[in-house]
Amino acid sequence: MLKDFFRTFSSMIELEFRRLKHDRTEIYSRAVQPILWLAVYGPIMGSIRAIPTGNIPYTDFITPGVLIQSTTFISIFYGLTIVWERESGILKKLLVTPAPRYATVIGRAMASGIRAIFQTFIIILVALIIGVKFILNPFYFVLALVIIFFSSGGFAAISILVASFMKTRERFMGIGQALTMPLFFASNALYPVTMMPKALQYFATINPMSYVVDAVRSLIISGDLTNLWLDIVAIAIFNIIMFTLASVNFKKIIE
């Protein structure tokens, strides 16, 4: 049982690696937007010092936010691949293999994490060039990568769930946009949650992106690990819920 799961899971991860080996255009083109946030928006907003970020420069503060926004976008639009595979016969064929269906879903979802990790390296490189100061602790850095990888799977599971309802690419694109922007702006990515109106603050506390940003920010920028365990637990709960929902609904996708 567990063996079947890991076999399917690792096949899906390997598939993603092989795809990236042949074509990385998407990763590069999706890096443009976060680079603008870091290189243009960050310094300008930072120069007016309107946002209290403690003793961390503003661009450094938003780097994890922009990073997570970008990896989350990749994960959420990963559902597009699933919609494409639904239109073609790939999903039908996968469902007829002995691979457990939930393993197919979780494997596909986590495969988006591979893209997210690639994206992370590009953005961190750009941030280094801009002059963002990272905490130089390899253990923290690796843990941050693991968190990014794992949470990407959760966000991709949302998109697989959406894909099982929205069966055309156009509809999926619309929903994708409508999902990602609120997640981003109603999170702690660009400003501390305490600056938001009360209602939004409540939303931010159930927004999984806030926890991911907080975890990554504490590991690579601030070094303040007080909330790290809370973040990790929240992300784990989010992932488990999303994996379950996406797996349960997956059969619908081919009907």
């Binding site: 795809r19 016969g89 039908k92």
Partner: peptide, 18 residues
């Protein structure tokens, strides 16, 4: 599913790998 193989009518291979 352990006994069968299936080729759907629609294309069912990944085109961006070999």
């Amino acid at each position: 599913r352990k006994l069968i193989s299936y080729v759907p009518q629609e294309m069912s291979v990944w085109t961006d790998i070999s």
